[in-house]
Design a protein around this nucleic acid. Structure first.
Lengths: 194, 194
DNA sequence: GTCTATACGCCGATAGAC
DNA sequence: GTCTATCGGCGTATAGAC
């Protein structure tokens, strides 16, 4: 660490502001000049840190996904049953929705594949493949009824992700965590064995 | 009708090609020059029909939503129970996904609110409000268990819309209609009374 | 109502001084 | 590693002939 503590690095400032702007006005309507103005970092310096505009979005995506992967690993370590693990995943996603809504906006509403054309769709990302696998494990061990894994995923996470979208759009009266139990229960009913 | 029959009007040609391009490469990466080339209509003529690029997207959206509204009205007329109506809605959406995937891409994957900032989110559109209402009716008459209507919507249509997204992304082995029964059944389990 | 030609602003990216 | 200045190109939209 060559920096004095408490000083936020330019890279982090740029990423933070870019996430805000990309989710507020969309990637394509955000110019480097916008980012320069809001960060008080000149466009020249921005290009010193990132090769181009797309590289900013890519770094954002990589950072978010790494956090998601870490959280998934933590969940696998601290929870063992399918019910507990899915509950923890829902907790994680709802907590993110409340504490870092821009992150969920970026993942669910920004259509990031338009500007990161090499990235996979959200449901094919490593983290979400992990979420799928939790359900597949449940089919194997009988906690979840015999069904097509894709149907199980669409049912369980479709419910959860749609409710997050609604929350981000301001369509829920209360913070989404208030519906945590009810939504998990509803999603679980769709897949639970009897 | 001042046209000889069988001649497709410029407006319709422009809309058809624009829908294709907007969903293939996204609205922001599609230029008027692209549309001019693919339609063999000059950019000058395109601007004669539409005030600007956004007006093309708006016309597309309005046309799609009008079709959706009509289909919803038809469903209400020809089906009476909540189960039958939701089955018909799922049929409608899956048929659209197979026969006019660009339409579903536009509605579900294009994030149209980025370029049509005055439009509501899909789940707040008149057609989808109607889909919601079908579920609310079910809560009233007892076919659906007592639950928050937003939760019912997220559960039922979250399942259906997520599966459509997966189908559009090529993540399902078979055409989505092959999963019609299984998906309706799974979505229904989440909300049905007992 | 169709075309060609072009104006003009915006924005990503670079050059180069400090 | 930060800045200012600027280039080059693209893309929307318009002008105006036919």
């Amino acid at each position: 660490m060559t920096e004095t503590a408490n000083q936020e690095e330019p890279r982090e400032i740029i990423l933070k502001i870019s996430l805000k702007l990309f989710t507020q006005k969309s990637y394509f309507k955000t110019s480097i000049a916008d980012i320069a103005r809001e960060t008080s970092i000149s466009s020249g310096s921005i290009y010193h840190v990132f090769k181009n505009k797309e590289a900013i979005a890519q770094a954002l995506y990589d950072d978010l996904m790494e956090r998601m992967d870490d959280s998934l690993a933590e969940i696998r370590r601290t929870h063992k049953t399918v019910a507990d693990r899915t509950r923890a995943v829902v907790d994680l996603l709802f907590t993110l929705t409340e504490d870092a809504p821009e992150v969920m906006r970026f993942l669910l509403l920004s259509n990031y594949r338009e500007f990161l054309p090499t990235e996979k769709s959200l449901s094919s990302s490593p983290a979400f493949e992990g979420f799928k696998e939790i359900l597949s494990d449940g089919i194997k061990n009988g906690d979840i009824r015999r069904m097509n894994p894709a149907t199980a995923y669409a049912s369980f996470y479709g419910t959860i992700l749609e409710s997050i979208r609604m929350s981000l759009e301001g369509l829920l009266e209360k913070p989404i965590s208030a519906y945590n139990h009810e939504l998990w229960d509803s999603a679980w009913r769709a897949v639970v064995r009897r």
